[in-house]
């Protein structure tokens, strides 16, 4: 890693649209994930094989996590939250692939994910409670709390973005610095640590999104709106 992680290089242009390297990396990651999913789910059977068992275990685990957190049917929220975890974990683990930068090490990707969570919270909240019921959540427990609740909606989204960006960017930065200074084998412990950090950050981001959505779809849990 020679370039600064704070800069975003343009890979090519699609007309007037500049396509940066994180976007290209994301496309590659998406293609890998979708292709792998398509291949893994090509022949699903009642008696699962090894790959199918792993897939079912992963999906069931995420589903159980959503059910325990939201205390509701997890099926409507599963695609969004599971994709969030899979994408962030996969992107973070790209730090271990030589020559690739994790898209989550760039602020645009983290911001996009945080905004997606922000929008998803409101979409799921309105879908569950209706416009009036959902908007009334911001005035609870009293009208005095309305400005704070509105601010917290922004700040917790911002904190999501910054947390993920800071952790992943710093890991990539440290690995790049150590790799450029010492050699091949010394960064390996740092890479292992980055592996752990990437998975933990993906889990934290997903669980926080789950909690935000849970607070939006359940009136009783709406008052403590800002765990971040």
């Amino acid at each position: 890693m020679i370039n600064s992680p704070l800069t975003t290089r343009i890979a090519f242009h699609l007309g007037p649209v500049p396509v940066t390297e994180p976007v290209v990396t994301t496309w590659g990651l998406m293609a890998t994930l979708v292709l792998g999913a398509a291949l893994a789910t090509r022949r699903l059977r009642d008696e699962p094989g090894r790959v199918q068992a792993v897939l079912e275990l992963a999906v069931s685990t995420i589903e159980d996590q959503i059910r325990e957190t939201l205390r509701a049917d997890p099926r409507p929220y599963l695609p969004f939250l599971a994709t969030l975890f899979v994408f962030i974990a996969g992107a973070n683990l790209l730090a271990l692939v030589p020559g690739l930068e994790p898209p989550t090490a760039h602020l645009e990707t983290d911001a996009a994910l945080a905004v997606m969570v922000f929008l998803a919270v409101h979409v799921f909240g309105v879908r569950a409670l209706g416009w009036r019921g959902y908007l009334a959540q911001f005035a609870r427990p009293t009208w005095v709390m309305l400005p704070l609740n509105l601010v917290s909606e922004v700040t917790r989204t911002f904190s999501l973005m910054v947390r993920l960006f800071g952790n992943i960017m710093s890991g990539v930065f440290v690995i790049g610095v150590v790799l450029s200074l010492v050699g091949l084998f010394v960064p390996i412990p740092f890479m292992a640590l980055e592996l752990l950090t990437g998975l933990i950050q993906a889990y934290i981001f997903t669980v926080l999104a789950m909690v935000f959505i849970g607070g939006a779809v359940e009136p009783a849990r709406a008052s403590p709106r800002s765990p971040a």
């Binding site: 975003t8 649209v17 500049p18 396509v19 940066t20 994180p22 976007v23 994301t26 496309w27 998406m30 994930l33 979708v34 999913a37 398509a38 893994a40 789910t41 699903l44 059977r45 009642d46 699962p48 199918q52 897939l55 079912e56 999906v59 589903e63 099926r75 599963l78 695609p79 969004f80 599971a82 994709t83 969030l84 899979v86 994408f87 898209p103 760039h106 645009e108 990707t109 911001a111 996009a112 994910l113 905004v115 997606m116």
Partner: peptide
């Protein structure tokens, strides 16, 4: 970069849709 931001947001939504079609739905169906 706002273009990168927008493209990543779109990429995420597309990925949600694709994985829903190719991963979650078949696995949940089984």
């Amino acid at each position: 970069d706002l273009w990168t931001f927008a493209l990543q947001a779109a990429n995420f939504l597309v990925l949600v849709w694709l994985l829903r079609h190719f991963l979650y739905r078949p696995v949940l169906g089984v």
